[in-house]
Amino acid sequence: MASEKSKILVFGGTRYIGKYMVKASISLGHQTLVYSHPINHKTSSSQIQLCQEFISIGATLIHGELEYDQIVTAIKKVDIVISTLAYPQVLDQLKIIDAIKTAGNIKGRNTFFKIFYVTYFVS
C-alpha cells in the first residue's frame, strides 16, 4: 500500500510551502495537479517561471479562482487534496472542505487532517 501512487491536488502550490509540496509529490511519482490563480499581467516573472518548471517536471496546472464549482471540478480529478493556503485564506479552506464533501471521491478517513496539516502545523 505504501507504494500506491495517487493523484494529488495542491492548492497554493506556487507559493512558499506549496512549491516544496508539489516537487515532493512529483519526486515520489504521484500525478500532481497544482491549483493556482490564472496567469495575467500582474503575475510575477518568478511565479511564471515556477509554473513552467512544474510543467517541465510533469505537474498539471489548473488555473482558476477559488470559486466553488471550479474547486469541485478539480477535486473530482484526484484522490488526495493538500492545501498550503496561508492563514488569511481560512474561508477559502472552508470552501475546499465543502467541495471535498460534495465531490465525495477523496480517499481516506482523515480528510480534515490531510487538508489542514500543511497550513497549520508545517508553516
Rank of each mutant, 00 (worst) to 15 (best):
Y87A: 13
E53S: 06
S46E: 15
I100K: 06
R15K: 11
M1I: 06
D79E: 09
V34A: 04
G13W: 00
I55H: 07
D98T: 13
L85T: 05
Q47D: 13
Q49S: 09
Y35K: 02
I80P: 01
T84M: 03
S3M: 11
V10L: 02
F121L: 14
G18Q: 04
I82L: 01
F112P: 03
I55N: 08
S36L: 07
R109D: 15
S3T: 14
K19N: 13
E4F: 10
R109I: 09
V10N: 03
A74K: 03
F113Q: 12
L61A: 02
K5G: 04
A74P: 02
S3H: 08
R15H: 12
A2N: 13
Q49P: 01
L9N: 05
F11M: 09
G12D: 05
A24V: 06
Q89T: 07
N40K: 06
G29I: 07
G58L: 03
T73H: 11
I97R: 15
K107P: 00
F116W: 13
P38F: 14
K77Q: 15
K114H: 09
D92R: 12
T73D: 15
S3Q: 12
F113H: 14
V90H: 11
Q89K: 10
K114F: 05
T73V: 05
K114A: 08
C51P: 04
I71K: 04
L28T: 05
G12T: 11
Y20S: 10
L91D: 15
A103T: 13
T84E: 00
S3Y: 07
K77A: 14
K101W: 12
L33K: 09
V90I: 13
E4K: 10
I96K: 07
F54Y: 09
K77T: 15
T84A: 08
T32N: 00
F113N: 10
Y68R: 10
T119R: 09
L85K: 00
D79P: 01
S25C: 13
A59N: 00
V118A: 12
Q52D: 12
I75C: 06
Y87V: 06
F54I: 05
R109E: 15
M21L: 15
I115R: 01
L9K: 03
S6T: 09
H63K: 07
Q49A: 08
S45L: 09
D98H: 11
H37T: 07
S25R: 04
G58E: 01
I97W: 15
R109F: 13
